[in-house]
Design a protein around this nucleic acid. Structure first.
Lengths: 222, 222
DNA sequence: CGAAACACTTTGATTAGTCAAGAAAATGCG
DNA sequence: CGCATTTTCTTGACTAATCAAAGTGTTTCG
């Protein structure tokens, strides 16, 4: 049984190696940055994870998850996302505040409880931010989405939001850009690097910057 | 912020010092026994808790909780019991299995989430085993209950059950002796040390031993 | 090429929690 | 009362996780 510290390292490595597919090497510096620990701490931990068979580590060349490590990391992410979904749908907490809570709970919930939660929720496939929930065996099946920033004029539905800073999420909520809401691209201005949109049932147009628009992943309506 | 290990020590000390009232001294041996650690470990920890102001420790004379320690221990018990109530009432887990789960979760749930849970449940004052839930300020208000073993013939309602071994709880469930169910004492046999009762809506009489009957706390009906 | 900059590793130390085993009180039995 | 048993305490050692600071290998670029 890995400790919750180890689980956090695995999770960080998975998300830094491009989430799904690739057995991409991850540099220790990135891990240190992500977890706010010193590089030396990461070196020590990577040797340990290597010895335990969670990752493959080559000095000064980074780490990559082993199959075992990847599987376990996916489980942790599954827990995290199901818990977020539960806290929003069942408990009624604010979706912007739920990330931190799940960060703790993901290490404390038993498999029995997790299965029950999954069942109560009707086996959802995305969390409240639209991130896909890995299946029990660790596989992630997610349809391809387009950043709003790359979309032509037309009607779309927000599926996923990148980032979990509460303030940003609150703002999205206010703008009616939560996952599940629809958004219409009125026009694009390549020079100003903005999009003009109407969101949800709003009539009033608003401009959003390309960098923000690239954090909203959508599918075309119909 | 105490660690979860410290919280477990505080909880153990509170429950060993006679739960409410008394500033009774607790011997380190009892604590070691309760937590399945060696006496030496407890000694070390008690010095630490004393230094932090959670308990008063006198060598070879045991410890007693300070006001601060007692308050904090009550909070932890509050968490534990509210979580149990939540897991049974909202999530639908089996009341016999819920203790262990809560044992982990009590250290991971934020105050915000706990308040929300309390609200969802309608501010309950007992957990699924009938143990009183301390209020947010740590006070425990519980009416006096009588062990079934001390009751004359008549009708009663089970309020609280002493013990948390799943097998015992399953058995109670089966016998319809869960908290909230009513039970009728038909007769007592002092020599055999048994009671003859009918439980819940059952018609058939059954005998239970005094020692078991003393683990069922009841109030008279009406 | 070689020196500086950067990224990573090593070393030595710290804190929290724990155990095993031996020492010292306290208790209890004859 | 006095020795044996039990209980409690002390000591030394270990694991997990971490940091600071010094050291080493790589890359880059003037």
């Amino acid at each position: 049984m890995p400790t919750s510290t180890v689980e956090n390292y695995l999770k960080a490595i998975l998300s830094l190696s491009g989430d799904e597919k690739s057995t991409q090497r991850v540099s220790l510096g990135e891990i240190a940055e992500r977890l706010s620990v010193t590089p030396g701490t990461v070196t020590t931990m990577m040797k340990h994870l290597d010895a335990k068979g969670w990752v493959g580590y080559e000095a000064r060349r980074g780490v990559r998850l082993t199959a075992k490590g990847r599987r376990h990391a996916s489980q942790v992410i599954r827990r995290h996302r199901l818990i977020e979904r539960f806290l929003v749908d069942v408990v009624g907490l604010d979706w912007a505040a739920v990330h931190e809570e799940a960060e703790e709970l993901e290490h404390a919930v038993s498999d029995r409880l997790l299965d029950r939660i999954d069942e109560m929720l009707g086996y959802p496939d995305r969390d409240p931010h639209g991130d896909p929930i890995p299946s029990a065996d660790g596989a992630i099946t997610a349809q391809a989405l387009t950043p709003l920033a790359d979309c032509p004029a037309g009607a779309f539905t927000v599926v996923q939001v990148l980032g979990d800073e509460p303030a940003f999420l609150e703002w999205l909520e206010q703008q009616r850009l939560r996952p599940g809401m629809s958004v219409r691209v009125q026009s694009r201005d390549e020079f100003a690097q903005t999009l003009t949109i109407t969101a949800g049932d709003n009539k009033t147009k608003q401009a959003i910057g390309m960098s923000t628009a690239s954090r909203l992943l959508v599918t075309p309506n119909e």
